[in-house]
Design a protein around this nucleic acid. Structure first.
Lengths: 211, 211
DNA sequence: GTCTATAGGCGGATAGAC
DNA sequence: GTCTATCCGCCTATAGAC
């Protein structure tokens, strides 16, 4: 009972899913134990029985997403014999696919990040493996240090991708498109691929002959 | 008394500044009228006297930032005789300068965005002029529609820039640099400029001869 | 404009019966 | 594991004296 309940338990799952939904709908502090329990159709006290505290509950929701994201990205990294450009496109596609399938995730992370330093360690713990993955994946494209280092490219790409999902609902109505619709996403995907290509070309120019 | 107090009033200013600080420190729901009043050194009830409600207070804080940002970007757009690349560098520098000078701002926006749809209209109202500005500023670089349109470039650049400020404090300790320090910012600035150049080269390739 | 006092609601969390 | 009942604290907001 450390906030990691047995998820084969049906009630625990229902609570977790309800919390997940509500976090995206009303934000962290909009969510109360009562609202979660009601949405899940279970008793108020069970939230604390299964997850110890509200914080524990949120941590579990977050955990599920980050594990999925890392797995998705690692699965897309495979085949080292593949041409670089195609490989990066696949990775970026996997990133977009995951966000599309879990639209609540970027919003949730965004909310938690902005919420004061108590949560920073938690988030950092999940971010660290992602950063290491990026540095591995970009090892032979980006220099190890300086403005073109993998870490900068990682921040840049997560910015380019997640910002669309977080700001999209705000901006898209301004140009009269449904931001959640497949057409808008397809266009964004094309944009991101184009950014990949442009940055790749830029990197190639930096290092005209292989070192 | 519509939540727009006379800011020549000293107490109103103190409350506004205190709210600004606290919003960044503890997030929107971490801020209470009491905490604001205490930080400002004034009485609890004065918050409501001057700002009508907590929501009104937050709106005023937000307003101040967005107005400043738009002004900064517009000021940097001037001189149309300047070469395109230099002009864009200046704009991007102005964007980064503003964020550097107001580090709380991106974090605040991030938090509010993630906080449910009640605030979306408010944010949209501030975002709309920025989007219009971007479309004007990029009018003769980007096509009016499709994946390379100004609106995509706008989301991309605001993502690249703001993500550094929001995620930086999380990530930078992982590579042992002070994210708030001038060295880290200078490196990021170099990165963003490089991204501008790479995307500009990409756009030039799309349209080999001017239409 | 500024203060005190307080109403009234909702929050997390626990005790203890079943 | 699940339920009822409850404690206690903090919140926004207002009334009314000064």
């Amino acid at each position: 009972m450390d906030g990691r309940p047995d998820l084969r338990n049906d009630t625990a799952r229902k609570i977790l899913d309800a919390a997940d939904e509500l976090l995206a709908e009303v934000g962290l502090d909009g969510v109360s134990a009562r609202s979660v329990a009601t949405r899940a159709g279970v008793n108020n006290a069970l939230v604390f029985y299964h997850f110890k505290s509200m914080r524990g509950l949120v941590e579990r929701v977050l955990e599920r997403y980050y594990e999925g994201q890392l797995a998705a990205l690692e699965a897309a990294t495979g085949a080292a014999d593949e041409p670089l450009r195609a490989r990066l496109h696949r990775v970026v596609d996997a990133y977009l696919d995951f966000m599309e399938a879990h639209r609540r995730f970027p919003r949730l992370v965004q909310g938690l990040t902005a919420m004061g330093p108590e949560l920073h360690d938690l988030l950092r713990g999940h971010l660290a493996p992602l950063l290491r993955w990026a540095e591995r994946a970009l090892a032979d494209v980006a220099p190890p240090e300086g403005p073109l280092a993998a870490r900068h490219l990682f921040i840049t790409f997560s910015g380019v991708i997640t910002t669309w999902f977080t700001q999209g609902p705000l901006l898209a109505p301004l140009w009269g498109d449904d931001p959640e619709g497949p057409a808008a996403l397809a266009e964004r995907r094309a944009h991101v691929r184009w950014v990949v290509d442009a940055l790749l070309a830029g990197l190639a120019r930096e290092e005209p002959a292989g070192t």
